[in-house]
Design a protein around this nucleic acid. Structure first.
Lengths: 220, 220
DNA sequence: GTCGATAATTTTGTATGCAATTTCGTAAGA
DNA sequence: TCTTACGAAATTGCATACAAAATTATCGAC
């Protein structure tokens, strides 16, 4: 029995390979493919009703992105990060977000930036109130996407929204906030407020000490 | 006449696609392929004496990496960064290096870290004395690779050494140091010294103000 | 039952074929 | 001279084919 997953071939110029990349990333996001799991080209081809060629090309894109690990003669598997790798990644990504904070603060009053950022923050609050780790981490991620866009650094925007950053970020849900729901939201309320206040020094200080705190309990 | 470029098929497990990726990146590095240039799969296939399939896969890896831009039905071209994009990229990459500095300082006395970092610095000095922008930028890049390795954050190491970071970094050679050779090396001597001294606060302060200075003259 | 060798099956890697699309050259018309 | 139109050539995207490698299954020895 062939269960064909629909490829939403965006009416526009999205190529088949692009659709496949997106479909596979989606599959990873909603845990249909688990980290470490092997991805057999033939199976995917059948699942999506295409030949192996575009599937392989999609897997190579994902390998370039870092979502997938490609070993010669052994095919592809979803990349799996050790605990240390995830902590390292968090440290890395937070250093980036710091840049978003620094530059975002200076532009908070342009256009509807303030309103938009505030909306994103309420999603964080909402996920927090439900104590839903995955949604919480996702909301934090989207908040920083918004902030990075506001910051105006095109490269940070480009980078932070790449599939594998999204993917790795989501994988942090089992490390944070851990047992620290209260402190976490409290920190972010302060960060958000200082950003809204346009106080760059305070925002960076807040965010920086939040990072230190998060890393301290993640590294134990 | 078919001029076949040698693919150095590393004796070990490096697949054909990997070799192609490396060969293409090398081609970009020594300016045989210019940013914006179109890469025709058939031509590359012929050049390397293979079929189009692995070439296409290599191009998809590079697309995932961000070295190449892939447009549906129009094939691949070497990614070209505008001036603003390059400045944004520099801002981005410096934020990362900041992390390397912060953590690297704390480990400067482990093993032969001090010696190795010092060796990398002398390469910077050497390129500086020749006033060779490309070599200078490359030496700076390698210095930070060494520092990132010392820092112990595996993700920063992994990330900073990816082909496209190397590629983009090299593309900064026409923006820096510009007319500012003297100030640039002077800053780096101070950065290097504070790192050797193990003075984290001073190192971060030095590096941070160096970044501000570089960006100020690049943004003009 | 466990281990190891061997055969059968699966899966990968690369080449090739062909239709669809784009690109390029050329010529007609304003 | 500059567009615009059109047809030929080039190029891409996807499917298919097949050899090489890896994986799994089978079977016998202990």
């Amino acid at each position: 029995m062939t269960k064909q997953t629909d490829l939403q071939k965006n009416a526009d110029a999205a190529s088949l390979v692009d659709s496949l990349v997106e479909a596979i990333v989606d599959g990873v996001m909603d845990h249909r493919y688990a980290p470490g799991q092997r991805l057999v080209a033939t199976d995917l081809a059948e699942e999506f009703g295409v030949s192996r060629a575009p599937v392989r090309e999609a897997l190579h894109v994902l390998a370039g992105e870092g979502v997938v690990e490609l070993v010669a003669n052994r095919g592809a598997r979803i990349r799996k990060l050790s605990r240390k790798e995830r902590v390292d990644f968090l440290e890395f990504t937070e250093a980036l977000c710091m840049l978003g904070v620094r530059q975002g603060v200076t532009r908070i009053d342009e256009g509807d930036n303030r309103k938009r950022l505030d909306e994103h923050f309420s999603v964080i609050e909402e996920a927090w109130s439900r104590r839903h780790a995955a949604d919480f981490v996702d909301a934090l991620y989207r908040y920083h996407i918004a902030l990075n866009r506001i910051s105006g650094n095109g490269f940070v925007k480009f980078f932070y929204e790449r599939p594998y950053i999204r993917f790795y970020t989501i994988m942090l849900a089992d490390l944070a906030p851990g047992e620290n729901w209260e402190q976490y939201i409290s920190n972010y309320r302060e960060i958000h407020q200082t950003i809204l206040d346009g106080d760059q020094a305070a925002a960076m200080e807040c965010f920086s000490s939040h990072i230190s705190w998060v890393l301290s309990f993640m590294k134990r």
